[in-house]
Nucleic acid binder design. Sequence first.
DNA 1: CTTTAGCACTCAGGGAAAGAGAGTGCTAAA
DNA 2: TTTAGCACTCTCTTTCCCTGAGTGCTAAAG
Lengths: 352, 352
Amino acid sequence: MELSDRKKQILKLVVEDYVDSAEPVGSKVIAQQMGGSVSSATIRNELADLVEQGYLEQPHTSAGRIPSPKGYRLYVNELMEKHRLSLEETREINRGLQMKMQELDRMITQAGQLLSSFEGYPAYVAAAGKGSVRVKRYELLPVDESGCILVLMTNDERVKSQLLHLQLKVPGEKLPVVTSLLNNHFAGISAEEMNRRLMDVSEQLAPAMFLLLSQIVSYTTRVLEEANRKEVRTVGASQLLKLPEFRDADKAHQLMSFLAEEKEALPAPDEQSAMKILIGPENVSEALQDTSVVVASYDIGDNMRGLIGVVGPTRMDYAAVAARLSCFAEGLTRMFGKREHGELPPGEEHEE
Amino acid sequence: MELSDRKKQILKLVVEDYVDSAEPVGSKVIAQQMGGSVSSATIRNELADLVEQGYLEQPHTSAGRIPSPKGYRLYVNELMEKHRLSLEETREINRGLQMKMQELDRMITQAGQLLSSFEGYPAYVAAAGKGSVRVKRYELLPVDESGCILVLMTNDERVKSQLLHLQLKVPGEKLPVVTSLLNNHFAGISAEEMNRRLMDVSEQLAPAMFLLLSQIVSYTTRVLEEANRKEVRTVGASQLLKLPEFRDADKAHQLMSFLAEEKEALPAPDEQSAMKILIGPENVSEALQDTSVVVASYDIGDNMRGLIGVVGPTRMDYAAVAARLSCFAEGLTRMFGKREHGELPPGEEHEE
DNA sequence: CTTTAGCACTCAGGGAAAGAGAGTGCTAAA
DNA sequence: TTTAGCACTCTCTTTCCCTGAGTGCTAAAG
C-alpha cells in the first residue's frame, strides 16, 4: 500500500531529525518543521499509522519515534534527495586522493583513512584481482655464484622480483638457458599447472637445475596467490566510540572485533552495480545487524576491481555518505585509470 | 631508603593481587596470604607506611590499596620473579611464528596479531632500517618500445622492481648504455646526491635519455625513502574494551585513536638493550600516561632491527608479558636469521 | 619498640522513592 | 478530517538511605 504524500514527508522528517540528534523525535518538532500548517495532534495520528505499518518504532510508550530499518529503506529508495557535495568538499576529497602515488596497497589504505575521517565512521577498502593472474615473462639476473635475481612480469602488468639464494651453485652462463626454459614452459599457466610440469620434467634435469626450478616455482606460486587474494583493510574503527549508539563497551567491542577479524565478511556491491546500501538486518553478518553499510566499487586498471565502504549506525546520513562515497570511488577509478597510461611517472611497485 | 623485607613482600602481594582482580586490595587478604603469621592490623600499619613512601595509593579513604607507578617500578626491578613459560606455551608461540614465510611486512603483522591475542592487549610492531639504504646495482630489462622494467638491488640485499612507461621511445639497444651509466654514477649514493647528479649531467644528455633517467631517479628515491622509513603497525586495539579500566568509552577512544594515528610515538627499546618496560607516567606521550608499555627488539638480518611490543593497563602481569615477549623476539630473530642463509627458500619480495 | 585486638569512622555502590519532563492516546468538539 | 484538551505512561535524574568493606587510632599485650 502506498503511503500518502504527507506520511512520506513526515517519515522523511523523522529520519532526518533522528539522524542528527540520535534521539527519538516527537510530534511537536515535526509539526513545527512542517511550517505549522498542521497541529501536533494530526501528526500524532499519522505517526501512529506509520508505526502500525512498520516504518517507525517506538522505544517505549510515550517516547518519540525512531525509524525502523524498513523506514530507512523507504527513505533511501524514494525520499532521500541527492545530496549535493559542495565544491569545496569535492575538491577536498580529490586533493586528499592526490597524494603521492605509492604502491597500490598503501594507496587504497590511505583512501580508506581519508574516507573514514570524512565520515566519522569506520571505513574498509579492498582491491580484488579478477582471479586469474598469470606470469607473462620470467627473467633471471646473475648476482654471484650462489645467488641470482628473479624478475616476474604478470599479465596484469605488474612486476615482482626476488633475490634467490641457491643451495647449489649454478654458473652464470647457465641462466639464459633456465630463463628460456621458464618462458617456454612455465609462462601463462596457473600455479597448480606449474607444479605439475615441474614434476613432469624433474627426471630429465640435473639436480642443481631442478632445485633452482623448484625454488622459482615456489616463489612464483606465492606471488600469484597473493596477487589473486582479496585483502580487506579496515580503518578508523575507533571512531565508533564517539557515537552514542556505541558508548556501551560490549557493543563496541563486538563490532570492532568483527571489523578487525572478519573483515572478509563485509559486503561488496554486486557485479553490475556501483554502490550498495545495506540497512541493519539486511546485512547477513550477525555482527552487523544493528549497523548499516554503504559500499562502492571502483576500477583499478582493467583487471582489478576495488571496494570502498563505510560502516556506521543505522542512523546514518545516507544521502551525504552515498554522495561522498561515489566521489571517492570515481576519484579512485580516475586515478588508477590514469596511471595505466603513464601520464605521470606513476608508482607501481613492490617490496619485500 | 631501603624497604624492609616484609614491606617488599607485602608490596609484591598487593601488585600480584591487584593485577588479576583489578580491585583495590585490603589488609585482611594480605594477612591471609602471608599465612596468618601476622594480623591484619600489622599489615595496615605497613600499608600506611608504603602509601606514605609512595609505593601504594588509596583511591579513597577506606578503600584498599593499589600500586602506584613507583610501586610497579620497584616490583619490576626487584620483586618480580622470572616468569617461566610452560613448555606448551613456548611451543605454541613458536608454532604460531612458523607460518608460511611471506613478505616481511605481512610476517611481522602476523607476529603482532599473535602477540596481541596471547596477551589480550593491543600490540604493535615495526621494522626499521638502520638508516642508510643505498642502491647497489641497477638493471634494465626491455619490454617493448615504450616500456622497460627497472630492477634495483639495495645494499641490504633486497630487490625491488618496477615497470616504467616511457614518455619517449628508447630503443632496446640503448638500455645497456643507460644501465652502465646508472651503475657507474648513481649507485651507492643517497637520494639527494642522486638528484644533484641528475642536474649536473642534464645538459650533456639527449632529452629522451634525461627523461628516462629522471623517471628512474624519482622511482629510486621513493624506494629508498620507504626502505628507510619505520612503519609501525598496531593490532588488536579492540581488546582494550574488554579491560575494566577502559569500559569508559572516552578513555578507550582516546587511547585507540592514539594507537591508530600516532603509533610512531610508541616507545622503542634503547639501542643496546633488548627490552624496555615503561610504566604509566614514565611514558612521554600524553595518551600513555595511564598505561604501560612493554617492548622488545629483534634482528632482521644484519641491517634491520624490528620492534614488537604491547600496550596495556598499568595493572599488567609484567613478569608473564615480559617472558612471552622475549620468546617472541627471540623467535623472530631466529626466523629472520635463518632466512639470511637460505636454508629454506625464503621469501623476500615486493609487489605491484 | 612491635604487634594485636577493638572500635568508631569513612566512603563507594546499590536500590528505593520521588519528582520532572517529554510525549503519547483518547475524547469531544469544530 | 483536524484540532484542543487532558490524563496517563514511562524514562531519566536526583536524592536519600543503607550496607559492607576497609581504614585509622587507641590502648593493651608481648
